[in-house]
Design a protein around this nucleic acid. Structure first.
Length: 456
RNA sequence: GUGGUUGUAGCUCAGUCGGCUAGAGCGCCAGAUUGUGGUUCUGGAUGUCGAGGGUUCGAGUCCCUCCAGCCACCCCA
């Protein structure tokens, strides 16, 4: 082409891979807020932060989640010919981590880990190939206290984020195993659980068909399974029925006893009963779960799926260490949660993290503006100085669009009078405040305006 | 990964049967108003029509491939 060498021809098209995204400030501010909330809640229970590499040896990651997760693994050879993979969750790397560092960590070990994970699967709303998980886990104890705490943390976290309408669905894999054992279907467990997992989505009839076709179970067996999975009522009610249906199976009974203690503990800790629902159909797709399993659904947006889930994995670390290191934990799917909050209109766009803008008004007073900003920051405020001495109206317009809450107007008149105007950008009101040595009046006035805004 | 569907300005979208230089609203920039924003008025800029190829005298429009979004399956956060 004759003009292929002009300004367009050789340019690289800016683009991102399917399922991978850029985060603009108004999204990133929300993400960071959620991260901060999660950190705060996790720390309040004694979970300590760790980090691990994004890339692991392939054999660390393969065969841990399920056949499906193996397929979704991003894997390749590095420059040294090593087979490596990007982590698809934070739990498997944690198992490796504790196996490697158990001696120095001490048990029980409680950690949180906020990090990116990658899954090469097809995208959808709330479903990406690169996304952030916020995990917390307790390693090295089989105590039901750890299971109970897992629910408490999720509950506190969702409350802190601002949700009231959510349900934490819980179950124990062992009661499902017990049931299938009693029905002599133990060998087909994975396939049956997978079918069962779809119950809320495709209904009893379709699940029945699928169980029969995947496991060869008889109608009678299927009826028993569906009767079990479809149990409804209060948690106490369901528990009683579970107890009777898995009677005789050692593993089933241990699961049911565990559920008793688990639910009692959760309620004792103050979680409202309606937020914790025992659901015998919850199975989870990852192979490493051995006991308690849980999912969190938003009552107003159930179709987006689980936004926080996890469970107990008492044998996962066995794959990496001789020492018996049981674990339990859960993961908040931050990007999915954000997609849900967006769909629910819970995300008010914020474009700036700075409450205060100082317009650059008098060209000759740059030093004064910079000094004022610096001193206001010392008192804990986030302050931005506009870089160009444009018309005041332009600068206020900028402040308005960006979402600054306060502008400090300081021109020739104010300098002469030894004052400044503190302008509430939401209401338009200004008040003249003396520019004193300590700036205490200004800080007080800004705080007052911010407080008014916050209460609106 | 499979199937369906969509892709036109920063955003939401129109664009007839294939036919002139691709439009609207909102937003953006400038001015009205060189010391006070959000309202109003006036003016202005902005598109490789998702990308590449094909059919045609002629393609935003038809065909193929690819890329991306959405939905379903699968699986999951």
């Amino acid at each position: 082409m004759p003009n292929s060498s002009d300004q367009h021809g050789d340019r690289i098209q800016p683009r991102t891979l399917k399922g991978f995204r850029d985060y603009l400030p108004e999204v990133m501010i929300l993400r960071e807020r959620l991260i901060e909330t999660a950190q705060k809640i996790y720390r309040s229970y004694g979970f300590a932060p760790i980090d691990t590499p994004a890339l692991e040896y392939l054999d660390i990651l393969l065969g841990k989640g399920s056949e499906e997760t193996d397929k979704q693994l991003y894997q390749f050879e590095d420059h040294g010919g090593r087979s490596v993979g990007l982590r698809f969750d934070l739990t498997v790397p944690l198992a490796r981590f504790v196996a490697q560092h158990a001696a120095t960590l001490g048990m029980p070990f409680k950690r949180y880990h906020i990090g990116t994970v990658w899954r090469g699967e097809n995208t959808q709303r709330g479903r990406y190939r690169e996304f952030l998980q916020c995990d917390f886990d307790t390693i090295g104890t089989e105590s039901i206290v750890a299971d109970i705490e897992t629910v408490l943390v999720i509950h506190d976290l969702f409350r802190a984020i601002g949700f009231s309408r959510f349900t934490i669905l819980v179950n124990d894999r062992r009661v499902l195993s017990g049931l299938l054992q009693n029905l002599a279907l133990g060998r087909q467990e994975p396939a049956i659980l997978r079918a069962l997992d779809k119950l809320p989505k495709i209904g009893l009839d379709h699940v029945a068909d699928e169980i029969i076709s995947c496991s060869g179970a008889s109608m009678k067996q299927v009826d028993r399974i569906l009767a079990f999975a479809g149990l409804e009522g209060s948690n106490r009610n369901i528990l009683e029925k579970i107890h009777s249906m898995i009677a005789g199976s050692a593993i089933g009974e241990s699961g049911a006893r565990s559920l008793d203690q688990f639910l009692a503990g959760v309620i004792a800790a103050g979680v409202p009963t309606e937020r914790v629902q025992l659901d015998p159909a919850i199975a989870r797709g990852l192979d490493y779960y051995t006991g308690t399993v849980l999912e969190t659904r938003l009552d107003d947006l159930p179709e987006i799926g689980s936004v926080a889930s996890g469970g107990r994995y008492d044998s996962l670390v066995d794959l990496f260490a001789k020492q018996k290191l049981p674990g339990i934990g859960a993961s908040l799917g931050l990007d999915r949660l954000l997609a849900a909050m967006d769909a629910l209109g819970m995300t008010q766009p914020v474009r700036t993290p700075a409450d205060v803008l100082i317009p650059y008004f008098e060209r000759d007073h740059l030093g004064d503006y910079l000094q004022l900003a610096a001193r206001l920051r010392e008192s804990g405020l986030a302050v931005e100085v506009f870089p160009d001495a444009k018309k005041l109206g332009k600068q206020l317009q900028y402040a308005n669009r960006r979402g600054h809450r306060v502008a400090i107007i300081l021109g020739a008149n104010e300098f002469a009078g030894g004052i400044c105007q503190v302008k509430n950008l939401a209401s338009g009101e200004t008040s003249a405040v003396p520019l004193t040595e300590t700036l205490s009046e200004i800080v007080l006035e800004i705080s007052r305006v911010l407080e008014i805004n916050r209460n609106q």
